[in-house]
């Protein structure tokens, strides 16, 4: 029963929601409106599960003294500190969450993390970006043209360079991206059908 009931709900809701999409009747639209509310409520439970899972994972790391366990202390302190600040003083502008945690901790940390990427990218490109094979050489040339074409200096070197970069992005890049998108979409449809029809049962978790 513990497995049959969720499977039955999944099958019924999966089929109903598929049919609902094509039925513009007020009852159908009303039902859809109701289910979007359910999704938001279920999402809230997922947040609780996520926070619980994060806490358990880091407590386990601490207990077993895994490599880098000190970072787990930082994570847990940050989690508890942010939660207390948010729950205690609210999240409105001017509250400590905004003024201290967001403006004075998150913004500079986040910006610094992203800013140092430029230095590591330059160093990594110098050491690793090699034309060892024909494919790598092709990638290198394409990257070269796009990087130059996307900045004003590229147009200053050769007026047609931005057009070449645009062509690379809108023809070969798009063809490859589209193929990946189709693959992902077909995979998602196949997986969804397997879940709806009860073939894929991993989401039910372990146990009998």
């Amino acid at each position: 029963m513990r497995r049959t009931l969720p499977l039955a709900i999944c099958l019924i809701m999966g089929i109903v929601m598929m049919v609902q999409f094509f039925v513009p009747h007020p009852i159908s639209v009303g039902f859809y409106d109701l289910t979007t509310k359910w999704i938001r409520i279920v999402s809230a439970f997922a947040l609780v599960l996520g926070v619980g899972s994060l806490i358990l994972y880091h407590i386990d790391r601490l207990q077993r003294k895994r490599p880098g366990w000190a970072y787990s202390i930082v994570t847990l302190i940050a989690l508890v500190g942010t939660a207390i600040t948010g729950l205690g003083w609210g999240v409105k502008p001017g509250a400590p969450l905004q003024e201290i945690i967001f403006k004075n901790i998150l913004v500079p940390l986040n910006a610094s993390m992203f800013a140092i990427l430029a230095f590591y990218m330059a160093s990594a490109a110098y050491r690793a970006f090699r034309a060892r094979t024909k494919e790598a050489a092709l990638l290198l040339i394409a990257a070269f043209l796009v990087m130059l074409g996307m900045v004003p200096v590229g147009a200053a070197i050769w007026g047609k360079l931005p057009d070449v970069a645009e062509w690379i992005l809108s023809v070969p890049n798009m063809a490859a991206k589209r193929a990946i998108l189709f693959g992902v979409a077909l995979g998602a449809i196949a997986t969804s059908l397997k879940v709806i029809l009860g073939i894929e049962r991993g989401w039910l978790g372990g146990g009998k």
Partner: peptide, 17 residues
Amino acid sequence: SQSLAHIVILVLVVIGN
């Protein structure tokens, strides 16, 4: 700045190769 940053990376890639 971005123009010069791109040029630096490209020059480094050429020298590296």
